[in-house]
């Protein structure tokens, strides 16, 4: 700042010691020479070994600033540097999940993320639920676990709006639904005309539990054919849910299922879970589940 340089022509430079912004001074210091100097500064920047000049582009200036911060100057010789980041890989998903939730809230819709292992009877329970609620509760379904068109047909005919997500064709993360997928699926639903949305997640006890999609709460379907130890084997899933449907109760006479052991295992990972013993096939016990599903007398 404030250096005085006398220049006879535009070829000059004694002031090149890394002072960003020096060109402003020159305009004041030299009568009638300022035009030449403006051009000169641009042309000379490469010879200024410590000059963070503007015409080298923002990327390099940024790199150097980072290298300064990190204290690693080896980058100048080798081009290598280490960048500290600390970015939560789930953060972007969670932001979108919040946006989805705001859309649900704005429309006054209750949204349940329904998860399970494959073959637990999730679609059957959903089918029975839709049939029971038809005419009283306006239901939308985001269907993320379609193996065949046959599954989709099973859910049709009950007056529910159904938005299909094709998770089998490399559609994002195929082992679970994530918030961006749900955002897309919302285009297939008219939320203003709905009371309840059920998101049928991909049949999988691992990752669906880890991805918020904007639901208000999570539930899962578990079949007694799966074995009593599942809560301990998949604690993250069992801990993530508010409600557990214990399905296929109609098969109990043919199995050695130990319900008490199962409850103990659930309590070890999720002591506050609501458990609904039911049979989606026969309809036994489904009424209590429906009350919880629709947000009715569940919180007693």
């Amino acid at each position: 700042m404030g250096r005085f340089h006398r220049h006879d022509d535009g070829s000059v430079h004694s002031h090149d010691h890394g002072e960003a912004g020096h060109s402003h001074d020159h305009d004041h210091d030299h009568d009638g020479h300022s035009h030449d100097h403006d051009h000169d500064h641009d042309g000379h920047s490469h010879s200024h070994s410590h000059d963070h000049s503007h015409d080298e582009g923002h990327d390099h200036a940024h790199d150097e600033a980072l290298a300064e911060l990190i204290g690693d100057h080896s980058g100048y010789q080798t081009g290598r540097e280490r960048i500290e980041i600390l970015e939560d890989i789930y953060a972007e998903n969670d932001r979108l999940a919040d946006a989805n939730r705001r859309a649900f809230d704005a429309a006054g819709v209750r949204v349940i993320n329904l998860m399970s292992s494959p073959g637990s009877g999730k679609t059957t329970l959903l089918q029975r639920s839709l049939a029971a609620l038809e005419g009283s509760v306006r239901v939308g379904v985001i269907e993320g676990d379609i193996e065949t068109p046959l599954d989709a047909e099973r859910l049709g005919g009950y007056g529910a709006q159904i938005s299909l997500l094709n998770t089998g064709n490399g559609f994002g993360g195929e082992c679970h639904l994530d918030a961006p997928m749900i955002a897309k699926a919302l285009r297939g639903l008219d939320l203003e005309t709905l009371d309840l949305v059920v998101i049928e997640n991909v049949g999988n006890l691992v990752c669906p539990a880890e991805f918020e999609v904007g639901e208000h709460t999570k539930a899962m379907v578990y079949a007694i054919t799966e074995g009593e130890d599942k809560p301990l084997k998949y604690p993250v899933m069992f801990r993530s849910v508010e409600a557990i449907c214990v399905n296929k109760l109609d098969l109990a006479p043919y199995l050695d299922f130990d319900m008490e052991l199962f409850y103990r295992n659930v309590a070890a990972v999720n002591p506050t879970a609501k458990v609904f013993e039911l049979s989606a096939r026969t309809g036994e016990g489904v009424e209590a589940w429906l009350e919880w599903l629709t947000g009715g007398a569940a919180d007693d």
């Binding site: 100048y76 080798t78 081009g79 290598r80 280490r82 960048i83």
Partner: peptide
């Protein structure tokens, strides 16, 4: 969490 990356910038090797 992505905590850090090591990068190699060929443009900066040239510059150095």
């Amino acid at each position: 969490t992505l905590t850090a990356i090591d990068i190699c910038d060929p443009a900066r090797v040239t510059k150095g």
